[in-house]
Amino acid sequence: MSGESKAIVAQGLSKRFQSFLAVDNLDLEIAKGEVVGFIGPNGAGKSTTLRMLCGLLRPSSGKAHVAGYDVEKDPEAVREHIGYMSQKFSLYNDLTVRENLRFFGGIYRVPKKEFAGRMNFAVSMAGLEGREDMLVHTLAGGWKQRLALGCAILHRPPILFLDEPTSGVEPEARRRFWDLIHDLASDGVTILVSTHYMDEAEYCNRIALINRGRLVAMGSPGELRLRDLGGKLVEIACSPLGAAVNALAGSVIEAAIFGDRLHAVLDPNGPDGEEIRKLLEEKGMNVGAIRMVSPSLEDVFVRLVSGGKEERVLS
C-alpha cells in the first residue's frame, strides 16, 4: 500500500474535459498533519484536483491515494476518512443550524451517544452558541463557512479538503477560519485547502502553486520566498499602471501591478532603475520613487505563473 506515512499521494494525476486538460500530470505528496495551501488563479484546476482526491471525479490518468485508499478503486473508503467542503456553499439553507448538523451527523454515521458532544463542539467552534435554531440562510457568510466546516468534521476525519472556504468572507472572519484550521492541524488533521488569496499562503506549512492545471512550485513559504527571481526586484510608483506594464515589456524580466505600485524584476543585462525611469518618462508617464524591495510570496507567484516555465519542485 502506498503512502503509509503520507496522507495524500498523487502521481501523474490528470483530468481531461473533452479536449481541455484541466489538471495536467500532477504529483503531490502530503504528510499527515500538514496544512497545505493549494494556490492558483481561477480556472487553474484546484477544484478539479480536490474533487478527484475526494473520489467525486474520475481521473483521466494517473493515480491518487488518500488515507491509503485508491480514489478511483475505493472511493467509499476514501469518503469515510475525509471531510470535504465544496466551493459552492453547501449547507441546507432552509434548515436550522442544529438540523444541518444532525443531518450530516446522521449521514456520517456519528454514533448516537457521541453526537451531542460533537455537535456542541461544532457549534462552539463556529461561534454559533445560542443560534442553534436559526435558519442557515439568515446567518452571515463567516458563520455559514464555519458551520460548513463544523459539518465536515463531525465524523472526525483525519483528512480535510477545503475548496476556497474563505472566498467572499470578510477579512476578520477569514482570520478566524484559519485559526480553526490550525487548531485542527494541531490535533493531527491533514488539511489541503485551496484559495486564490495569496496572503493566505503564509498560513500554510507548505504551498502548492498550480496554474493551468500544472503544479508550478511546491514548498514552504520560506523556501518559496528564497526563489531566485532572476534579477533584482524594484517597486515603482508610477501612473498609469497598465500602460507602464506594457511599456516595460521586453526591457525587464517581469513587470506586474502590485496594489497601487508596479513590481519589476530587472534583467541583470538590461536597464537599471534610472534607465527605467527615463524609459517611462519618455512615454509620458509620471514616475515617483523607484526602490529595491525584497520579494514577497506574491512576487514569486507572479514570476512562476507568468514565466510559464516549468520549474522543479523544491526539495
Binding site: R79, S90, I107, Y108
Partner: peptide, 17 residues
C-alpha cells in the same frame, strides 16, 4: 441546483439511503 449534492456525495451515504 443548490450545490448541496456535491457535499452529499462526498460523504459515505449509500445510494439506497
Amino acid at each position: 441546483e443548490r450545490g448541496t449534492m456535491e457535499q452529499l456525495i462526498s460523504t459515505p451515504i449509500s445510494a439506497s439511503e
